[in-house]
Design a protein around this nucleic acid. Sequence first.
DNA 1: TGTACATCAGTGAACGCGCGTTCACTGATGTAC
DNA 2: TGTACATCAGTGAACGCGCGTTCACTGATGTAC
Lengths: 206, 206
Amino acid sequence: MNQAATPLTPRERRHQRTRQAILDAALELINQGGMKELSMRKIAERIDYSPAGLYEYFGSKEEIIAAACAQAEQRLEAYMKAVDPSLPPAQRLVELGMAYIRFAQNYSEQFIALQFSQASGQTELPAPVETHGSFKVLLETVQEAMNAGEISAEPYDVFTVAYTCWAFVHGMALLRLTTLKDVEVDFEPVNRWALEKYIEGLRTTS
Amino acid sequence: MNQAATPLTPRERRHQRTRQAILDAALELINQGGMKELSMRKIAERIDYSPAGLYEYFGSKEEIIAAACAQAEQRLEAYMKAVDPSLPPAQRLVELGMAYIRFAQNYSEQFIALQFSQASGQTELPAPVETHGSFKVLLETVQEAMNAGEISAEPYDVFTVAYTCWAFVHGMALLRLTTLKDVEVDFEPVNRWALEKYIEGLRTTS
DNA sequence: TGTACATCAGTGAACGCGCGTTCACTGATGTAC
DNA sequence: TGTACATCAGTGAACGCGCGTTCACTGATGTAC
Protein backbone atom coordinates (compact mmCIF):
# COMPACT_ATOMS: atom_id res chain seq x y z
CA MET A 1 0.00 0.00 0.00
CA ASN A 2 1.87 3.01 1.36
CA GLN A 3 5.22 1.37 1.80
CA ALA A 4 6.98 4.34 0.27
CA ALA A 5 5.20 6.77 2.56
CA THR A 6 6.35 5.06 5.74
CA PRO A 7 8.95 2.39 5.02
CA LEU A 8 8.44 -0.46 7.40
CA THR A 9 11.18 -1.62 9.68
CA PRO A 10 12.02 -5.32 9.62
CA ARG A 11 10.30 -5.66 12.97
CA GLU A 12 7.13 -4.13 11.61
CA ARG A 13 7.21 -6.37 8.57
CA ARG A 14 7.56 -9.45 10.74
CA HIS A 15 4.75 -8.22 12.89
CA GLN A 16 2.51 -7.74 9.86
CA ARG A 17 3.32 -11.19 8.57
CA THR A 18 2.46 -12.87 11.84
CA ARG A 19 -0.71 -10.87 12.12
CA GLN A 20 -1.71 -12.06 8.69
CA ALA A 21 -0.83 -15.63 9.57
CA ILE A 22 -3.19 -15.40 12.51
CA LEU A 23 -6.01 -14.14 10.31
CA ASP A 24 -5.34 -16.82 7.70
CA ALA A 25 -5.41 -19.50 10.35
CA ALA A 26 -8.65 -18.10 11.72
CA LEU A 27 -10.29 -18.08 8.29
CA GLU A 28 -9.10 -21.60 7.56
CA LEU A 29 -10.56 -22.83 10.81
CA ILE A 30 -13.85 -21.12 10.10
CA ASN A 31 -13.95 -22.56 6.62
CA GLN A 32 -13.36 -26.03 7.92
CA GLY A 33 -15.81 -26.22 10.74
CA GLY A 34 -17.65 -22.96 11.09
CA MET A 35 -17.43 -20.38 13.81
CA LYS A 36 -17.70 -22.97 16.54
CA GLU A 37 -14.32 -24.38 15.55
CA LEU A 38 -12.62 -21.07 16.10
CA SER A 39 -10.69 -20.75 19.33
CA MET A 40 -7.58 -18.93 20.40
CA ARG A 41 -5.94 -22.23 21.24
CA LYS A 42 -6.63 -23.70 17.81
CA ILE A 43 -5.41 -20.61 15.99
CA ALA A 44 -2.24 -20.62 18.06
CA GLU A 45 -1.63 -24.30 17.46
CA ARG A 46 -2.02 -23.83 13.71
CA ILE A 47 0.74 -21.24 13.55
CA ASP A 48 2.96 -22.82 16.20
CA TYR A 49 2.45 -20.20 18.85
CA SER A 50 1.28 -20.42 22.40
CA PRO A 51 -2.24 -19.05 22.93
CA ALA A 52 -0.86 -16.21 25.00
CA GLY A 53 1.31 -15.12 22.11
CA LEU A 54 -1.69 -14.05 20.06
CA TYR A 55 -2.30 -11.20 22.45
CA GLU A 56 0.78 -9.53 21.08
CA TYR A 57 -1.17 -9.05 17.85
CA PHE A 58 -4.79 -8.77 18.80
CA GLY A 59 -6.41 -7.56 21.97
CA SER A 60 -9.05 -10.23 22.05
CA LYS A 61 -10.74 -13.00 20.14
CA GLU A 62 -13.39 -10.52 19.08
CA GLU A 63 -10.78 -8.39 17.36
CA ILE A 64 -9.54 -11.37 15.42
CA ILE A 65 -13.04 -12.22 14.29
CA ALA A 66 -13.69 -8.66 13.22
CA ALA A 67 -10.46 -8.52 11.23
CA ALA A 68 -11.12 -11.91 9.66
CA CYS A 69 -14.62 -10.85 8.64
CA ALA A 70 -13.28 -7.68 7.08
CA GLN A 71 -10.89 -9.82 5.09
CA ALA A 72 -13.67 -12.12 3.93
CA GLU A 73 -15.63 -9.07 2.88
CA GLN A 74 -12.72 -7.98 0.74
CA ARG A 75 -12.57 -11.34 -0.92
CA LEU A 76 -16.25 -11.12 -1.74
CA GLU A 77 -15.69 -7.69 -3.16
CA ALA A 78 -12.95 -9.07 -5.36
CA TYR A 79 -15.31 -11.72 -6.69
CA MET A 80 -17.80 -9.07 -7.67
CA LYS A 81 -15.25 -6.72 -9.17
CA ALA A 82 -14.14 -9.53 -11.45
CA VAL A 83 -17.38 -9.24 -13.41
CA ASP A 84 -16.80 -8.09 -16.97
CA PRO A 85 -17.42 -4.32 -16.94
CA SER A 86 -18.04 -4.20 -20.68
CA LEU A 87 -21.37 -5.99 -20.39
CA PRO A 88 -24.50 -3.90 -20.51
CA PRO A 89 -25.44 -2.90 -16.95
CA ALA A 90 -28.58 -5.04 -16.70
CA GLN A 91 -26.63 -8.10 -17.77
CA ARG A 92 -23.91 -7.14 -15.35
CA LEU A 93 -26.43 -7.15 -12.53
CA VAL A 94 -27.12 -10.79 -13.26
CA GLU A 95 -23.44 -11.61 -13.31
CA LEU A 96 -22.87 -9.77 -10.06
CA GLY A 97 -25.52 -11.93 -8.48
CA MET A 98 -23.97 -15.07 -9.84
CA ALA A 99 -20.59 -13.99 -8.51
CA TYR A 100 -22.13 -13.47 -5.09
CA ILE A 101 -23.56 -16.98 -5.15
CA ARG A 102 -20.28 -18.40 -6.35
CA PHE A 103 -18.42 -16.79 -3.49
CA ALA A 104 -20.89 -18.20 -1.01
CA GLN A 105 -20.39 -21.63 -2.49
CA ASN A 106 -16.60 -21.47 -2.51
CA TYR A 107 -16.20 -20.03 0.97
CA SER A 108 -19.33 -21.39 2.51
CA GLU A 109 -18.45 -21.38 6.17
CA GLN A 110 -16.76 -18.03 5.83
CA PHE A 111 -19.83 -16.67 4.11
CA ILE A 112 -22.11 -17.97 6.81
CA ALA A 113 -19.86 -16.64 9.53
CA LEU A 114 -19.98 -13.28 7.82
CA GLN A 115 -23.74 -13.20 8.17
CA PHE A 116 -23.98 -14.49 11.64
CA SER A 117 -21.24 -12.56 13.22
CA GLN A 118 -23.70 -9.75 12.75
CA ALA A 119 -26.85 -11.60 13.67
CA SER A 120 -26.57 -12.01 17.38
CA GLY A 121 -24.99 -8.80 18.45
CA GLN A 122 -21.39 -9.92 18.48
CA THR A 123 -18.64 -8.24 16.50
CA GLU A 124 -20.48 -5.68 14.48
CA LEU A 125 -18.84 -4.52 11.34
CA PRO A 126 -18.17 -0.89 12.09
CA ALA A 127 -19.38 0.47 8.77
CA PRO A 128 -22.98 0.77 7.59
CA VAL A 129 -24.14 -1.25 4.60
CA GLU A 130 -23.62 1.47 2.07
CA THR A 131 -19.90 1.34 2.55
CA HIS A 132 -19.47 -2.40 2.20
CA GLY A 133 -17.43 -2.64 -0.93
CA SER A 134 -19.51 -5.38 -2.45
CA PHE A 135 -22.75 -3.53 -1.92
CA LYS A 136 -21.28 -0.39 -3.39
CA VAL A 137 -20.48 -2.24 -6.59
CA LEU A 138 -24.07 -3.43 -6.78
CA LEU A 139 -25.39 0.02 -6.06
CA GLU A 140 -23.33 1.59 -8.82
CA THR A 141 -24.37 -1.00 -11.33
CA VAL A 142 -28.04 -0.48 -10.58
CA GLN A 143 -27.49 3.24 -11.01
CA GLU A 144 -25.84 2.68 -14.37
CA ALA A 145 -28.64 0.41 -15.50
CA MET A 146 -31.13 3.08 -14.59
CA ASN A 147 -29.13 5.78 -16.33
CA ALA A 148 -28.96 3.60 -19.41
CA GLY A 149 -32.73 3.25 -19.24
CA GLU A 150 -32.44 -0.52 -18.90
CA ILE A 151 -34.42 -0.70 -15.70
CA SER A 152 -36.70 1.56 -13.75
CA ALA A 153 -37.43 1.42 -10.06
CA GLU A 154 -40.51 3.59 -10.42
CA PRO A 155 -41.88 4.39 -7.02
CA TYR A 156 -38.62 3.32 -5.41
CA ASP A 157 -34.98 4.35 -5.54
CA VAL A 158 -31.63 2.88 -6.42
CA PHE A 159 -30.98 1.58 -2.95
CA THR A 160 -34.27 -0.25 -2.88
CA VAL A 161 -33.77 -1.99 -6.19
CA ALA A 162 -30.24 -2.95 -5.23
CA TYR A 163 -31.55 -4.33 -1.98
CA THR A 164 -34.09 -6.56 -3.70
CA CYS A 165 -31.48 -7.99 -6.05
CA TRP A 166 -29.22 -8.61 -3.14
CA ALA A 167 -31.97 -10.31 -1.19
CA PHE A 168 -32.71 -12.58 -4.11
CA VAL A 169 -29.20 -13.91 -4.53
CA HIS A 170 -28.63 -13.89 -0.81
CA GLY A 171 -31.55 -16.22 -0.34
CA MET A 172 -30.36 -18.48 -3.12
CA ALA A 173 -26.87 -18.60 -1.68
CA LEU A 174 -27.94 -19.32 1.87
CA LEU A 175 -30.65 -21.85 1.13
CA ARG A 176 -28.09 -23.79 -0.84
CA LEU A 177 -25.79 -23.90 2.16
CA THR A 178 -28.41 -24.68 4.76
CA THR A 179 -31.76 -26.27 4.03
CA LEU A 180 -30.91 -27.41 0.53
CA LYS A 181 -27.37 -28.51 1.19
CA ASP A 182 -28.15 -32.15 0.48
CA VAL A 183 -30.29 -31.62 -2.59
CA GLU A 184 -28.51 -32.83 -5.68
CA VAL A 185 -29.58 -30.28 -8.20
CA ASP A 186 -27.48 -27.87 -10.20
CA PHE A 187 -29.07 -24.63 -9.16
CA GLU A 188 -26.79 -22.44 -11.25
CA PRO A 189 -28.95 -22.21 -14.39
CA VAL A 190 -32.11 -21.87 -12.33
CA ASN A 191 -30.64 -19.04 -10.34
CA ARG A 192 -29.51 -17.23 -13.45
CA TRP A 193 -32.88 -17.72 -15.11
CA ALA A 194 -34.82 -16.40 -12.10
CA LEU A 195 -32.54 -13.42 -11.67
CA GLU A 196 -32.87 -12.55 -15.36
CA LYS A 197 -36.64 -12.84 -15.11
CA TYR A 198 -36.69 -10.47 -12.18
CA ILE A 199 -34.47 -7.89 -13.79
CA GLU A 200 -36.47 -8.14 -17.00
CA GLY A 201 -39.47 -7.29 -14.90
CA LEU A 202 -37.78 -4.06 -13.89
CA ARG A 203 -37.63 -2.85 -17.47
CA THR A 204 -39.10 0.59 -18.02
CA THR A 205 -41.67 -0.73 -20.49
CA SER A 206 -43.98 -2.13 -17.85
CA MET B 1 -54.32 -35.58 18.64
CA ASN B 2 -55.25 -39.20 19.19
CA GLN B 3 -56.30 -38.95 22.78
CA ALA B 4 -59.33 -41.11 22.11
CA ALA B 5 -57.25 -43.81 20.51
CA THR B 6 -54.97 -44.22 23.53
CA PRO B 7 -56.29 -42.34 26.54
CA LEU B 8 -53.37 -40.96 28.48
CA THR B 9 -52.82 -41.81 32.09
CA PRO B 10 -52.34 -38.88 34.49
CA ARG B 11 -48.67 -39.72 34.62
CA GLU B 12 -48.39 -39.53 30.87
CA ARG B 13 -50.21 -36.25 30.79
CA ARG B 14 -47.87 -34.76 33.37
CA HIS B 15 -44.95 -36.09 31.43
CA GLN B 16 -46.22 -34.46 28.25
CA ARG B 17 -46.75 -31.17 30.00
CA THR B 18 -43.25 -31.08 31.44
CA ARG B 19 -41.82 -32.05 28.09
CA GLN B 20 -43.62 -29.15 26.52
CA ALA B 21 -42.46 -26.81 29.26
CA ILE B 22 -38.89 -27.77 28.45
CA LEU B 23 -39.39 -27.04 24.77
CA ASP B 24 -41.09 -23.74 25.53
CA ALA B 25 -38.25 -22.72 27.80
CA ALA B 26 -35.75 -23.69 25.13
CA LEU B 27 -37.52 -21.64 22.46
CA GLU B 28 -37.83 -18.66 24.77
CA LEU B 29 -34.13 -18.78 25.50
CA ILE B 30 -33.30 -19.02 21.82
CA ASN B 31 -35.61 -16.14 21.04
CA GLN B 32 -33.99 -14.00 23.65
CA GLY B 33 -30.36 -14.52 22.94
CA GLY B 34 -29.93 -16.93 20.10
CA MET B 35 -28.60 -20.44 20.11
CA LYS B 36 -25.62 -19.49 22.21
CA GLU B 37 -27.89 -18.74 25.15
CA LEU B 38 -29.29 -22.24 25.12
CA SER B 39 -27.91 -24.56 27.77
CA MET B 40 -29.29 -27.41 29.79
CA ARG B 41 -28.67 -25.48 32.97
CA LYS B 42 -30.59 -22.44 31.77
CA ILE B 43 -33.52 -24.47 30.55
CA ALA B 44 -33.67 -26.28 33.87
CA GLU B 45 -33.49 -23.07 35.85
CA ARG B 46 -36.32 -21.58 33.85
CA ILE B 47 -38.69 -24.41 34.72
CA ASP B 48 -37.41 -24.93 38.27
CA TYR B 49 -35.76 -28.24 37.67
CA SER B 50 -32.28 -29.45 38.24
CA PRO B 51 -30.27 -29.92 35.05
CA ALA B 52 -30.18 -33.65 35.61
CA GLY B 53 -33.95 -33.77 35.64
CA LEU B 54 -34.16 -32.89 31.97
CA TYR B 55 -32.73 -36.25 31.08
CA GLU B 56 -35.96 -37.82 32.18
CA TYR B 57 -37.56 -36.17 29.15
CA PHE B 58 -34.85 -35.89 26.53
CA GLY B 59 -31.79 -37.98 25.94
CA SER B 60 -29.51 -35.08 25.16
CA LYS B 61 -29.32 -31.41 24.39
CA GLU B 62 -29.36 -32.28 20.71
CA GLU B 63 -32.72 -33.95 21.08
CA ILE B 64 -34.15 -30.86 22.70
CA ILE B 65 -32.84 -28.68 19.89
CA ALA B 66 -34.29 -30.99 17.28
CA ALA B 67 -37.70 -31.01 18.96
CA ALA B 68 -37.65 -27.26 19.43
CA CYS B 69 -36.79 -26.74 15.78
CA ALA B 70 -39.62 -29.02 14.72
CA GLN B 71 -41.95 -26.93 16.83
CA ALA B 72 -40.70 -23.69 15.28
CA GLU B 73 -41.26 -25.24 11.88
CA GLN B 74 -44.85 -25.91 12.82
CA ARG B 75 -45.35 -22.36 13.89
CA LEU B 76 -44.02 -21.16 10.58
CA GLU B 77 -46.38 -23.51 8.83
CA ALA B 78 -49.27 -22.04 10.80
CA TYR B 79 -48.28 -18.56 9.68
CA MET B 80 -48.40 -19.64 6.09
CA LYS B 81 -51.62 -21.57 6.39
CA ALA B 82 -53.27 -18.45 7.73
CA VAL B 83 -53.10 -16.87 4.28
CA ASP B 84 -56.55 -16.28 2.83
CA PRO B 85 -57.22 -19.27 0.54
CA SER B 86 -59.86 -17.43 -1.45
CA LEU B 87 -57.29 -15.17 -3.10
CA PRO B 88 -56.23 -16.00 -6.63
CA PRO B 89 -53.17 -18.28 -6.46
CA ALA B 90 -50.69 -15.76 -7.81
CA GLN B 91 -51.76 -13.23 -5.24
CA ARG B 92 -51.62 -15.92 -2.62
CA LEU B 93 -48.01 -16.56 -3.53
CA VAL B 94 -47.20 -13.00 -2.60
CA GLU B 95 -49.05 -13.28 0.68
CA LEU B 96 -47.29 -16.53 1.50
CA GLY B 97 -44.00 -14.76 1.05
CA MET B 98 -45.07 -11.90 3.25
CA ALA B 99 -46.18 -14.36 5.91
CA TYR B 100 -42.77 -16.01 5.77
CA ILE B 101 -41.08 -12.68 6.29
CA ARG B 102 -43.45 -11.79 9.08
CA PHE B 103 -42.66 -15.00 10.89
CA ALA B 104 -38.95 -14.34 10.57
CA GLN B 105 -39.45 -10.90 12.03
CA ASN B 106 -41.59 -12.04 14.94
CA TYR B 107 -39.47 -15.02 15.90
CA SER B 108 -36.17 -13.76 14.69
CA GLU B 109 -33.77 -15.74 16.79
CA GLN B 110 -35.87 -18.83 16.41
CA PHE B 111 -35.89 -18.33 12.67
CA ILE B 112 -32.16 -17.92 12.54
CA ALA B 113 -31.62 -20.93 14.74
CA LEU B 114 -33.80 -22.90 12.38
CA GLN B 115 -31.48 -22.13 9.50
CA PHE B 116 -28.27 -22.62 11.28
CA SER B 117 -29.04 -25.74 13.16
CA GLN B 118 -28.82 -27.19 9.68
CA ALA B 119 -25.86 -25.21 8.44
CA SER B 120 -22.97 -26.70 10.32
CA GLY B 121 -23.89 -30.32 10.45
CA GLN B 122 -25.57 -30.37 13.84
CA THR B 123 -29.09 -31.58 14.45
CA GLU B 124 -30.34 -32.26 10.98
CA LEU B 125 -34.04 -32.18 10.50
CA PRO B 126 -34.80 -35.75 9.59
CA ALA B 127 -37.11 -34.97 6.68
CA PRO B 128 -36.14 -33.70 3.23
CA VAL B 129 -37.33 -30.28 2.10
CA GLU B 130 -40.34 -31.50 0.23
CA THR B 131 -41.97 -32.64 3.43
CA HIS B 132 -41.48 -29.45 5.40
CA GLY B 133 -45.02 -28.32 5.91
CA SER B 134 -44.31 -24.74 4.98
CA PHE B 135 -42.62 -25.67 1.76
CA LYS B 136 -45.45 -27.99 0.84
CA VAL B 137 -47.92 -25.13 1.12
CA LEU B 138 -45.77 -23.07 -1.20
CA LEU B 139 -45.41 -25.94 -3.62
CA GLU B 140 -49.15 -26.49 -3.82
CA THR B 141 -49.86 -22.85 -4.36
CA VAL B 142 -47.38 -22.66 -7.21
CA GLN B 143 -49.03 -25.68 -8.73
CA GLU B 144 -52.44 -24.06 -8.45
CA ALA B 145 -51.18 -20.87 -10.01
CA MET B 146 -49.82 -22.86 -12.91
CA ASN B 147 -53.02 -24.82 -13.30
CA ALA B 148 -54.96 -21.56 -13.31
CA GLY B 149 -52.67 -20.31 -16.04
CA GLU B 150 -51.53 -17.43 -13.88
CA ILE B 151 -47.86 -18.26 -14.13
CA SER B 152 -45.67 -20.44 -16.23
CA ALA B 153 -42.32 -21.89 -15.32
CA GLU B 154 -41.49 -22.66 -18.92
CA PRO B 155 -38.28 -24.60 -19.08
CA TYR B 156 -38.50 -25.39 -15.38
CA ASP B 157 -40.89 -27.18 -13.05
CA VAL B 158 -43.04 -26.44 -10.04
CA PHE B 159 -40.30 -27.19 -7.58
CA THR B 160 -37.92 -24.81 -9.26
CA VAL B 161 -40.35 -21.91 -9.32
CA ALA B 162 -41.28 -22.53 -5.71
CA TYR B 163 -37.60 -22.58 -4.81
CA THR B 164 -36.96 -19.20 -6.43
CA CYS B 165 -39.88 -17.59 -4.60
CA TRP B 166 -38.65 -19.08 -1.39
CA ALA B 167 -35.12 -17.85 -2.00
CA PHE B 168 -36.40 -14.36 -2.63
CA VAL B 169 -38.31 -13.99 0.62
CA HIS B 170 -35.70 -15.94 2.51
CA GLY B 171 -33.09 -13.42 1.49
CA MET B 172 -35.32 -10.54 2.43
CA ALA B 173 -36.07 -12.07 5.80
CA LEU B 174 -32.48 -12.86 6.67
CA LEU B 175 -30.90 -9.66 5.45
CA ARG B 176 -33.33 -7.80 7.64
CA LEU B 177 -32.19 -9.76 10.65
CA THR B 178 -28.49 -9.63 9.97
CA THR B 179 -26.78 -7.04 7.81
CA LEU B 180 -29.71 -4.65 7.66
CA LYS B 181 -30.83 -5.00 11.24
CA ASP B 182 -29.96 -1.41 12.09
CA VAL B 183 -31.37 0.18 8.96
CA GLU B 184 -34.44 2.17 9.76
CA VAL B 185 -36.55 1.53 6.72
CA ASP B 186 -39.94 -0.09 6.44
CA PHE B 187 -39.12 -2.87 4.06
CA GLU B 188 -42.62 -4.31 4.00
CA PRO B 189 -43.98 -2.42 0.97
CA VAL B 190 -40.70 -2.83 -0.88
CA ASN B 191 -40.70 -6.54 -0.31
CA ARG B 192 -44.27 -6.88 -1.48
CA TRP B 193 -43.60 -4.75 -4.54
CA ALA B 194 -40.52 -6.77 -5.53
CA LEU B 195 -42.24 -10.07 -5.00
CA GLU B 196 -45.20 -8.95 -7.10
CA LYS B 197 -42.86 -7.80 -9.83
CA TYR B 198 -41.15 -11.16 -9.89
CA ILE B 199 -44.35 -13.15 -9.98
CA GLU B 200 -45.72 -10.87 -12.68
CA GLY B 201 -42.64 -11.76 -14.65
CA LEU B 202 -43.65 -15.41 -14.45
CA ARG B 203 -46.91 -14.74 -16.31
CA THR B 204 -47.47 -16.91 -19.32
CA THR B 205 -47.68 -13.93 -21.63
CA SER B 206 -43.95 -13.32 -21.81
C1' DT C 1 33.54 -2.29 17.76
C1' DG C 2 32.05 -3.42 22.33
C1' DT C 3 29.23 -2.90 26.23
C1' DA C 4 24.96 -1.74 29.01
C1' DC C 5 20.54 -1.28 28.88
C1' DA C 6 15.60 -1.03 27.15
C1' DT C 7 12.21 -2.96 24.59
C1' DC C 8 10.06 -6.62 22.32
C1' DA C 9 8.17 -11.32 21.21
C1' DG C 10 6.84 -15.25 23.05
C1' DT C 11 6.07 -18.96 26.82
C1' DG C 12 4.03 -22.05 30.48
C1' DA C 13 1.20 -22.36 33.96
C1' DA C 14 -2.62 -21.05 36.02
C1' DC C 15 -7.22 -18.42 36.81
C1' DG C 16 -12.18 -19.03 36.82
C1' DC C 17 -15.98 -20.09 33.98
C1' DG C 18 -19.91 -22.56 31.94
C1' DC C 19 -20.78 -26.47 29.71
C1' DG C 20 -23.17 -31.60 28.84
C1' DT C 21 -23.58 -35.54 31.12
C1' DT C 22 -23.45 -39.29 34.80
C1' DC C 23 -24.54 -41.49 39.03
C1' DA C 24 -25.84 -42.92 43.51
C1' DC C 25 -29.54 -41.33 46.06
C1' DT C 26 -34.40 -40.35 47.82
C1' DG C 27 -39.02 -39.47 48.34
C1' DA C 28 -43.37 -39.74 45.83
C1' DT C 29 -46.59 -42.20 43.02
C1' DG C 30 -48.73 -46.26 41.43
C1' DT C 31 -49.78 -51.39 41.63
C1' DA C 32 -50.94 -56.08 43.44
C1' DC C 33 -52.87 -58.71 46.75
C1' DT D 1 -59.00 -50.59 53.03
C1' DG D 2 -54.31 -51.53 54.25
C1' DT D 3 -49.80 -53.15 53.40
C1' DA D 4 -45.50 -54.44 50.66
C1' DC D 5 -43.21 -53.61 46.93
C1' DA D 6 -41.83 -51.75 42.24
C1' DT D 7 -41.40 -48.05 39.45
C1' DC D 8 -40.98 -43.33 38.56
C1' DA D 9 -39.52 -38.37 38.86
C1' DG D 10 -36.29 -35.59 40.39
C1' DT D 11 -31.89 -34.06 43.04
C1' DG D 12 -27.04 -32.68 44.36
C1' DA D 13 -22.64 -33.32 43.66
C1' DA D 14 -19.24 -34.42 40.86
C1' DC D 15 -16.75 -35.80 36.29
C1' DG D 16 -13.82 -33.93 32.68
C1' DC D 17 -13.64 -30.68 29.07
C1' DG D 18 -12.40 -26.58 26.34
C1' DC D 19 -12.62 -22.00 26.62
C1' DG D 20 -10.62 -16.65 26.83
C1' DT D 21 -7.53 -14.33 29.29
C1' DT D 22 -3.75 -12.97 32.66
C1' DC D 23 0.75 -12.81 34.54
C1' DA D 24 5.39 -13.41 35.98
C1' DC D 25 9.07 -14.94 33.35
C1' DT D 26 12.89 -15.26 29.76
C1' DG D 27 15.64 -14.99 25.94
C1' DA D 28 16.18 -12.39 21.67
C1' DT D 29 16.41 -8.13 19.20
C1' DG D 30 17.41 -3.39 18.85
C1' DT D 31 19.52 1.09 20.58
C1' DA D 32 22.79 4.49 22.67
C1' DC D 33 27.14 5.73 23.77
